[in-house]
């Protein structure tokens, strides 16, 4: 091999690795078993920074199981899961979870006031600069809860308010990725759309990557940019949101027909 070849080789390697690390998440032949049952099978997926991706599929298709892996609430049984070009297992877990926030299906608030819920991370991590009431108000404003009384008992909030409080709590960590596990499943249609519209705005304003589990094609059509359709633990279809108008796989066609 001549020097010239060698340098070209090096250059190609550098370009390849630069492109590779550009992916926020990279999944390769990933699977997950729970007590001997394969929930996810051979998932390969690449997610770019700044995407709004929806994981769509019938219940039991593995959407939530997949989402939980992105925040390392679970680990894959086999295969590769990289976050920012590094295996997720090699990340400092605290740093990873600060960068990757999660909003769960059912809103969870801890006993205490709205203020205590918002500043909960300070229980285990002394901040360099404690969160001021102004910071909190600014974040509450982002989720549309500006007028709430911060000394109110968080458990007395309505379902929609609790979910927005949960969103605000995650945002205070200044995440770069937001995982949403059907966060509006327990809410009515109008409220659900209002909350996801907020999320979509944050996604644009803060260049926040959003990965949202949903079984509501209307919601997905309206706000997501990319759709990954899961069926029985496998990716049946993956593409821009327009694939919902021209589904190619039989599974997605059947699913959409049923949801209609």
């Amino acid at each position: 091999m001549t020097d010239c070849h060698f340098y070209i080789f090096k250059l190609i390697l550098a370009v390849v690795s630069a492109v590779e690390t550009n992916y926020l998440y990279q999944l390769n032949q990933l699977s997950r078993d729970i007590e001997g049952v394969q929930i996810l099978k051979g998932i390969s997926l690449k997610i770019l920074s700044g995407e709004f991706l929806a994981l769509l599929g019938p219940s039991g298709s593995g959407k939530t199981s997949l989402l939980r892996l992105f925040n390392s609430l679970d680990s894959p049984t086999a295969g590769i899961l990289d976050y920012r070009g590094k295996s997720i297992e090699d990340w400092d877990i605290r740093l990873l979870r600060q960068q990757v926030g999660m909003v769960f299906q059912e809103p969870v608030v801890v006993a205490g006031s709205v203020h205590e819920n918002l500043t909960i991370c300070q229980r285990w991590e002394k901040p360099i600069k404690p969160l001021s009431d102004l910071d909190l108000l600014a974040t509450l404003d982002k989720v549309g809860l500006k007028s709430i009384d911060m000394h109110m008992d968080a458990r007395s909030l309505s379902g929609g308010e609790k979910q927005r409080l949960a969103l605000a709590r995650v945002l205070l960590n200044q995440p770069q990725v937001l995982l949403l596990d059907e966060p509006t499943a327990s809410l009515d249609h109008t409220l659900a759309h209002r909350i996801i519209r907020r999320v979509a705005e944050l996604h644009r304003e803060m260049n926040l990557t959003c990965i949202m589990v949903s079984h509501d094609p209307t919601l997905v059509r309206r706000f997501a940019e990319r759709v990954v359709f899961l069926h029985e633990g496998q990716i049946a279809e993956d593409g821009p949101v327009t694939i919902l108008d021209r589904p190619t796989s039989a599974q997605l066609q059947a699913y959409l027909a049923e949801e209609r």
Partner: peptide, 20 residues
Amino acid sequence: EKEIEMLLSLGAPPRAAIQD
């Protein structure tokens, strides 16, 4: 369970997530 996982997902160490 849900509360503990929520706290973990925010970056809480197990001890903090399970303290209560």
